[in-house]
Design a protein around this nucleic acid. Structure first.
Length: 884
RNA sequence: GCCCGGAUGGUGGAAUUGGUAGACACGCAGGACUUAAAAUCCUGUGACCAGUAAUGGUUGUGCGGGUUCAAGUCCCGCUCCGGGUACCA
């Protein structure tokens, strides 16, 4: 029978749809649950690309397999549909973003369905649906009404915040300020990144390290705006600790750890001479206090003016002004030429009473630590560089005893910087009662911190690189904040009964004046009045991350209008057992979600501390592209191939084949629709899995899909022919192969190694074709084995064998060890590690006899002749090695 | 600079705890079918050397060392490529 994939696939997709084959029931009774989730897509206008089906097919195989193994499987799909492109399109054409979004979702849904993915479509969600974002707003109000109790390391309701008496005495305003300073969501004047091109505020995370906006590549600038912020920094420690028990790729965990950037050290107070104030610095190297020869405060430090003496005031002012004009790009410029200026003021080093100058320099950052440092040029590269430039003293206090002697001399003389371990010198003060001379780094740090704490000059502290999360955007197409700004300055966050705050209809979607959100033009929607008090709605909207921070909870109970998801269902389904998506979300989405989830956990809304138990990243799919000798890229439709070389159709120049990301400009984009049309969904699924391991980056090769297409043709031709499947008694070799295949495929699915599972099925099919006949039982078993990978063809075969129900409701076969046992083994026999011949021997043969059998074998003579056998190594069932 | 990955035939990639390197597939070559082509099927295919041939030998997992009876796999030192990050005190 011909393999007519088109008819087969349409037929079964319709069958699944009509019978709701993959509907998930909340069967809390006996079945074990398995929640398997894809990172839901942003439905862009260009539709699915071949990268999407990679992860989706992988989860689909696991979902189908687990279902056949008797699990209650939750495998949903939805749309992360707020976002810029729909809004930009609205600005250009006046089409409401919801119209664009809905039509894009329709395209995505159609395309995804055409791949035969086993989703429960009754659970489809859309972040732009008011029934969905009602709960995004609801969670925001929870964040607003939560503070983080540092002692308990736990978020608690704001009503449980104790107000200190001294604050209480100052009255209502002070209490409000005190409370607002603790809330996890707060409204604050923030220095924000501004992208002039997109006219949008960006989070730190959305700005690339060259200072450009990740979405458009435009260079961003700084602006001061009132913005909503989320106090993710409070959860830094929890977010760090929580990583320990997660089955995530080590690399991703490491990226999150680096992003959080925990570092331990000490806060140390330096008395400022003539001011009666103490300047606090953070340092990871309190042991180098004796080498501190100057101090630096950042240009934005709140005491800069205070510290600066009159003689230096003008110069410092000019310096700060210049620094404020610099973008972060300039500040972290490649050249990194350090700049700075003396304030005229001195501080007193607490370990030895020495007076050291205080400088202002922009190599010290405002947002980290205390925004001020003690500088130890002898033992810190940055300080050393600065000291060299401004002729500040370099005072070596650590002898690099084990270093290269030339370098050591330079370090001791203050002509080089040493940051590694060594032995302290010049690090004692008799009257102050401190000495670390002769100790090493680890001991030195301990000793100094202990001394500082005793003398109340400082204390051990921990700092994080992680910053609070800038949570508002000046856009229309996002979740509105459930917030009213009253005319008297009070901020009111709406109660649950007033949610959702829906987006108003607009005619024009251009941003408001001065970078304000388009919602600033929303007229009546903006105005609120209550008992004669006037207010204005918040015009910012939430960033795109908001909706994706908790969507996995909504899939559990998508229709619930009383809660984000019911407690009972949440408890049953959470956590997500397997989460698959791209590594580009290594920090942002995955860190934000974990943060929200932990807050919800603290508030007893969810039952697990972490949302995603196991995470896996699929590798990107690239495609061939072409470039000229000069490196100019040539679009794929201008290529001519001759004898394995590539030439430009017009110029005739020889081109180099390279591997690059798929892009419109290179015209090397592969469209899944085309692939499905030409080879069918089963072939696309199989090829994406057969290309290589799921987690590696790999190029799309057209000829590769022909290979799996050929395989499916052979499978269908052979197994659909009753003449081939009418054997009465099964051949032992087939039985062995079949059970090997069941075993290998099961193991490989569990370990997400689909490429080798497919290869095993190919081997088995080749064996069947060679043997020409199998039993019906074998054919039915194999259909079940292949069904998670190529579900359409498997359903078709299954119905050809006379079954009326879906194969996806069948049990996955179990491998029977009985058929896998063997009693003899063909040993590879090596001499001095080199394979010389093979020898079939019983597996239960004692070692002594194996040795005899080897040395007595005629083939061995040649290799033993004239030599002494030193020993014979026998690894049972593996290898024999004769050493001469 | 720092952190994390990676490097195996012409190509994508296989190879439990160290134990037959190159499974499976693509490509290529030869053959069958065909008037021809496509499709399909069969055979061969890391490189080098010897042999008419069956076969035999040498060599071979980015480079240089080491451990071991045995190294793609473990250790030390590099090179190149990809990703993240960047004055975080």
């Amino acid at each position: 029978m011909e393999y007519n994939f088109n008819d087969i696939e349409k037929k079964w997709q319709q069958f699944w749809d009509e019978h709701k084959t993959f509907k998930t029931f909340d069967d809390f009774s006996n079945k074990q649950k398995f929640y398997i989730l894809d990172m839901f897509p942003y439905p862009s206008g260009s539709g699915l690309h071949v990268g999407h089906p990679e992860g989706y097919t992988a989860t689909d195989i696991v979902a189908r397999y687990k279902r056949m193994k008797g699990y209650n499987v939750l495998h949903p799909m939805g749309w992360d549909a707020f976002g810029l492109p729909a809004e930009q399109y609205a600005i250009q054409t006046g089409t409401h973003p919801s119209v664009t979004t809905n039509s894009n979702c329709d395209t995505f849904r159609r395309q995804i369905k055409s791949l035969g993915l086993a989703y429960d479509w009754d659970r489809e969600i859309n972040t732009t649906d008011p029934c969905y974002y009602k709960w995004t707003q609801w969670i925001f109000t929870r964040l607003y009404n939560t503070w983080f109790d540092v002692k308990q390391q736990k978020g608690r309701h704001i009503s449980e915040l104790e107000i200190p008496d001294e604050i209480r005495k100052q009255g209502k305003e002070a209490i409000r300020k005190y409370t607002d300073d603790k809330r996890l969501a707060y409204y604050d004047n923030a220095q924000v990144w501004w992208c002039e091109h997109c006219r949008i505020v960006c989070a730190n995370e959305e700005v690339l390290n060259d200072g450009s906006h990740e979405k458009c590549g435009n260079i961003v600038t700084r602006r001061n705006l009132k913005q909503w912020m989320l106090r993710i920094t409070d959860y830094a420690e929890r977010l760090l600790k929580g990583l320990e028990n997660l089955a995530w790729p080590e690399g991703i965990k490491e990226q999150q750890r680096n992003w959080i950037g925990r570092s331990t050290g000490a806060d140390v107070d330096f008395e400022i001479k003539g001011l009666g104030k103490k300047l606090r610095v953070f340092t990871t190297r309190p042991d180098t206090l004796f080498g501190a020869t100057y101090m630096v405060v950042s240009p934005e430090h709140e005491w800069v003016e205070l510290i600066t003496t009159d003689a230096y005031r003008q110069a410092v002012k000019e310096y700060i002004h210049k620094a404020s004009l610099k973008t972060d790009l300039d500040r972290t410029d490649l050249a990194k030429e350090k700049t700075g200026i003396f304030t005229g003021r001195y501080a007193i080093n607490p370990v030895n009473g020495q007076e050291i100058p205080i400088w202002v320099a922009d190599y010290v950052l405002t947002g980290y630590g205390t925004g001020a440092i003690m500088a130890v040029p002898a033992h810190d590269e940055r300080d050393f560089e600065f000291a060299q430039k401004f002729n500040l003293p370099v005072n070596c206090i650590m002898d690099p005893a084990d270093a290269d002697p030339v370098l050591r001399d330079k370090v001791l003389a203050g002509n080089a910087c040493w940051t590694e371990d060594g032995i302290y010198i010049n690090s004692a003060h008799e009257t102050l009662g401190i000495s670390i001379n002769g100790l090493n780094k680890e001991k030195g740090i301990q000793t100094i911190i202990k001394w500082l704490e005793e003398k109340e000059l400082g204390k051990a502290t921990v700092n994080y690189k992680l910053r609070d999360w800038l949570f508002s955007r000046q856009r229309y197409w996002g979740e509105p904040f459930p917030v009213i700004h009253w005319e008297d300055g009070e901020i009111e966050v709406l109660g649950d009964d007033q949610l959702p705050v829906t987006l108003p209809g607009l005619k024009k979607f251009e941003p408001g004046p001065d970078g304000e959100s388009p919602l600033a033009n929303a007229g009546e929607w903006l105005v609120v009045e209550k008992n004669g008090r006037k207010g204005r709605r918040e015009t910012n909207t939430m960033p795109q991350w908001a909706g994706s921070c908790w969507y996995y909870l909504r899939f559990i109970d998508p229709g619930n209008d009383a809660e984000p998801s019911s407690k009972e269902k949440e408890k049953y389904w959470m956590p997500v057992d397997l989460y698959i998506g791209g590594a580009e979300h290594a920090v942002l989405h995955l860190l934000y979600s974990r943060f929200w989830h932990k807050v919800l956990y603290d508030l007893d809304i969810v039952s697990t501390d972490e949302p995603f138990q196991k995470l896996f990243n699929q590798g990107m799919i690239l495609a061939f592209a072409y470039e000229t000798a000069g490196g100019a890229k040539v679009s794929a439709d201008l290529i001519e191939e001759r004898e394995g070389r590539y030439f430009h159709k017009h110029t005739g120049a020889e081109l180099k084949q390279i591997i690059a990301k798929m892009s419109k400009s290179l015209k090397n984009v592969v469209n899944p629709d085309d692939v499905v049309r030409q080879y069918g969904a089963d072939s696309l699924r199989l090829y994406e899995m057969f290309m290589g391991p799921l987690d590696v980056i790999k190029p799309w090769v057209d000829s590769g899909i022909k290979g799996v297409f050929g395989f499916l043709n052979r499978v269908f031709k052979f197994f659909s022919n009753p003449e081939n499947t009418g054997q009465d008694n099964e051949d032992p070799e087939i039985l062995k192969g079949l059970h090997q295949t069941i075993k290998k495929v099961s193991q490989d699915i569990e370990n997400l190694r689909f490429n080798t599972a497919i290869s095993q099925m190919m081997i088995f099919t080749n064996l069947c074709i060679k043997k020409e006949k199998v039993t019906k039982e074998t054919a039915e078993t194999f259909a079940r084995v292949i069904s998670p990978f190529a579900p359409h063809i498997a359903e078709e075969l299954w119905s050809l064998y006379g079954h009326k129900t879906s194969i996806s409701c069948e049990q996955f076969p179990e491998a029977d060890e009985f058929y896998l046992q063997t009693d003899s083994y063909e040993y590879p026999v090596s001499f001095n590690g080199k394979l010389r011949f093979k020898l079939e021997l019983p597996l239960d043969m004692p070692e002594q006899e194996i040795k005899k059998a080897v040395t007595g074998n005629p083939q061995a003579e040649k290799w033993i002749a004239g030599k002494q056998i030193k020993k014979i190594i026998v690894v049972k069932g593996k290898i024999i090695n004769v050493v001469t």
